[in-house]
Write a protein that binds this DNA or RNA. Structure first.
Ligand SMILES: [Mn+2]
Ligand SMILES: [Mn+2]
Ligand SMILES: [Zn+2]
Ligand SMILES: [Zn+2]
Lengths: 140, 140
DNA sequence: TATTAAACGATAATTATTATCAAACGTCAA
DNA sequence: TTGACGTTTGATAATAATTATCGTTTAATA
């Protein structure tokens, strides 16, 4: 515990962040959850240790962690729905900046192949590959 | 135009949907946009043809089309953000039902390989593979 | 320990989406 | 073709997710 606190202290120092009790509890809550939680779930977990914490503080710290690279978002696609009219199997090129999504034909890619067995009981419906980066327009 | 209208008419018949002017204009707007629009953008486009249309009608029809399989959503991850604490390169197993996201080690997958060149100017940052299906819990 | 910038909590505002409901419309059988 | 009936529409309220605002508190550091 003392050790973790010190680790967090230096993490914050590296990224120029003030060390606050709230920040540390939020970080530890996040790191103890290995199932890609949403902010609300993090809030509920943190509230067990700091009942008076504000939901806004949780959101603000998550943003801070993401901006500092201590944390990521699973996908670029949270927020408004993006609609797909191309019903053929295909993949995507996604720009991290402008969020433009461009189709990548299924045949333009070597088929996805697993080396290991998937967890028992999971039935695969399809594979989705995203090539993530900066589009021409955004990289200038 | 007459032909498209007839096509839409039979599409609706196949899926048990009433043929309305709004529905047809929304569908045609969608099919003419090859860039994965969000509902707001569809609304703006439809409004040029039916200025009096309600945003709710656009949302309701998009939902109807998705439920009928005439349309998809690009990703399962729209809505609340999902947080990623695993900073190692890895991929995901995603359940379409409960939205559970499970890590898939980078080494468990043959590397993604492109057969063709990407569009000029796109700089790749990383690949993200999602194995999409039903988890053990949801498939029973 | 005093100064100062950063962070916090409360809450308002914004954005995205869904729900509600009365009026209008489309379907289909007579 | 008409009329009954279920569906869709438009207006708008409600909800969910997130960000902004702002006065107060706290942490960094000199
Ligand atoms: Mn696509
Ligand atoms: Mn992960
Ligand atoms: Zn871009
Ligand atoms: Zn599931």
């Amino acid at each position: 515990m003392q050790f973790d606190a010190d680790q967090f202290r230096s993490l914050c120092a590296e990224h120029g962040l003030a060390v606050t009790h709230q920040r540390q509890v939020i970080y530890q809550a996040l790191m103890s959850m290995h199932d890609h939680p949403n902010p609300e779930v993090v809030y509920e977990k943190v509230r067990k240790r700091i009942p008076s914490i504000s939901l806004a503080t949780v959101y603000k710290n998550i943003k801070t962690f993401v901006d500092s690279g201590l944390l990521r978002e699973v996908s670029l696609h949270h927020g408004p729905a993006r609609l797909e009219t191309n019903l053929d199997p295909h993949h995507h090129l996604v720009c991290i900046q402008c969020k433009t999504i461009v189709d990548l034909d299924d045949g333009d890619l070597e088929p996805v192949r697993l080396k290991k067995k998937l967890p028992r009981g999971f039935s695969v419906q399809r594979y989705s590959v995203e090539v993530i980066g900066l589009c021409k327009h955004c990289s200038t």
